[in-house]
Design a protein around this nucleic acid. Sequence first.
DNA 1: ACACTGCCCTGCGAGC
DNA 2: TGCTCGCAGGGCAGTG
Length: 281
Amino acid sequence: MPELPEVETVRRSLEPIVVGRTIIDLDVGSFASVLGTISFDHARAALVGRRLTGIRRRGKFLLIDLDDESGIEVHLRMTGQLEVADRGAPPLRFQHLAILLNNGLDLRFADQRKFGRVIIHDGDPALALKSKLGPEPLETDFTSSYFQGVLRGRTAAIKSLLLDQRLVAGIGNIYADEALFLARIHPQRPGGSLAAVEVDALVSAMRDVLGSAIDQRGTTFRSYRDGTGQAGENQHRLNVYGRGRRGEPCFRCGTPLAYLVIGQRTSHFCPECQPLEIESR
DNA sequence: ACACTGCCCTGCGAGC
DNA sequence: TGCTCGCAGGGCAGTG
């Protein structure tokens, strides 16, 4: 499940290989809606001959900039993969699109569950995302006071608010659970009930879990790979995600971890380290 | 504006 | 062993 650290790892691994290359053709598989509503012919007309000038990340979106000020937006959703391979190499399993480059390499998009998309924009793809995405949690404009303002008066569970991309961009289920554990905050606490010190701890925990996950080149459970097909290592560093369902012990206190479904997402936490009642803290 | 639900999609692991 | 069933969940549309 690619979240900010995984998407950033894909970006970093692709950047030196694809930037500066020119698109010579496209190859689409049977799943035409990977391109959204535009036709394959339209996509080919828009992309062939374009040079890739950069690759950026915004939240969980990858943005490929082209030399005519247009761009491509890629979202991997749950099981998407974006990988570079030699033209002669066999296609990826579940491959839906290949962008053929002038250096003998193909940029390939695969997705087992067909949730991911490759969207071609006439202009800067970042503009389309501007209204949908909050600040980047690793940038300096994501401050504790900003987040405190965002949470003020909110009654929804903090876990759900962390997943709202309009409030902060790039957090998914794994890193939301990990950050709440580090900050010792129960996932069901109403967002507006967090004290200033708790928001401080949460903001700092988000930075910690995301930063170290990038250092580990992402979390690989099953399908996630970087742009060269390499798995990440962060799955060995997780404190709670996936462990609550199995009732495994908390690494901090030994209490069996628990899980709850919040906003239709499984939330793993330590009932001892992350109490729901503020009075008992 | 906010909170919440249902939808998309399919391989895989659990259970029988 | 072979089968069925439900889980995994990001973003978006739709409802109240």
